[in-house]
Design a protein around this nucleic acid. Structure first.
Lengths: 152, 152
DNA sequence: GGTGAAATTACTGCTGA
DNA sequence: TCAGCAGTAATTTCACC
């Protein structure tokens, strides 16, 4: 369903998403029109979900990352999940196995503003019982890239 | 240092990174050449870090997300952090407060391949002592978007 | 910093293979 | 699905404000 050429195209786009189409076509050895057709098709099929700009969090006072476990009363998880997702500073909201519990990823300016966010906007969501925060001291890797199968 | 117009440009790019420059210039009311110059400058200054394609993990058998706490012997954290970062299936490697411990984000096909990855490639990194895995049952939100300040 | 025009380059829809 | 072409559109440079 995804052949080698399309894989190659995706790999190129993972490296550098704003590359001109012609350049992609040169690299894969197809005509630009053919490459465009393949990309459009993958966009339609939902293989390609979109394109994102990656901003430097430090430049916007969002360098402090924290992961927070948020526990809820039974029956409140859908509501709480939705409320958490509404908060811009929260980048990820996952419901995880184990205790009835969310794991969320938060970006804030510093630990002080993280504390504020927790107390003023998370702790008072209806159904939230407890939170447990781990702050990030240093980040070794942070990507959304997916390992693609080898082209043969 | 970042004025309102550049902020507007970044907001537009966060919505839709592959938008043509002319379209951006129409929306912010500048000439295309001016917009181009601003974008180039922000790229040079490291405000814009790059552009990414967002692929659908399900189409590549990477739908299963898990977060794993990885504990290390004292003095091994740099080494372990580097080794973990080399593994493609691991998207994020953070050193977190509390116990000498990494929190990593993993994408695998299913829980079986997650188990394999843990046992065959993580547990036998020199210095790793224990792992504690939380698998994600459902994801409510997953973005790398940063909240940008209001343009006034 | 910005504009606007000119040159270059890219995109895209067709057609036929 | 592809290449090639033709028309349209976008990018990029540059002289000038």
């Amino acid at each position: 369903m995804i052949d080698n050429i399309s894989l190659q195209i995706l790999k190129i786009l993972q490296e550098k998403a704003r590359i001109p189409n012609v350049e992609v076509s040169r690299r894969v050895g197809l005509a630009p029109s053919a490459v465009l057709e393949r990309i459009r098709k993958m966009e339609k099929q939902g293989i390609i979900d979109g394109y994102e700009v990656r901003l430097n969090p430090e430049r916007f006072d969002r360098a402090q990352v924290a992961f927070v476990h948020v526990s809820t009363e039974a029956g409140y998880s859908e509501q709480v999940g939705a409320k958490l997702s509404d908060i811009q500073e929260i980048q990820e909201v996952h419901f995880v196995s184990g205790s009835d519990c969310f794991l969320i990823k938060v970006r804030s300016e510093d630990t002080a503003s993280l504390g504020q966010l927790l107390q003023q906007r998370i702790m008072n969501i209806a159904g939230v019982t407890t939170t447990k925060t781990e702050t990030v001291l240093s980040t070794f890797k942070e990507t959304s890239r997916i390992p693609l199968p080898q082209s043969d």
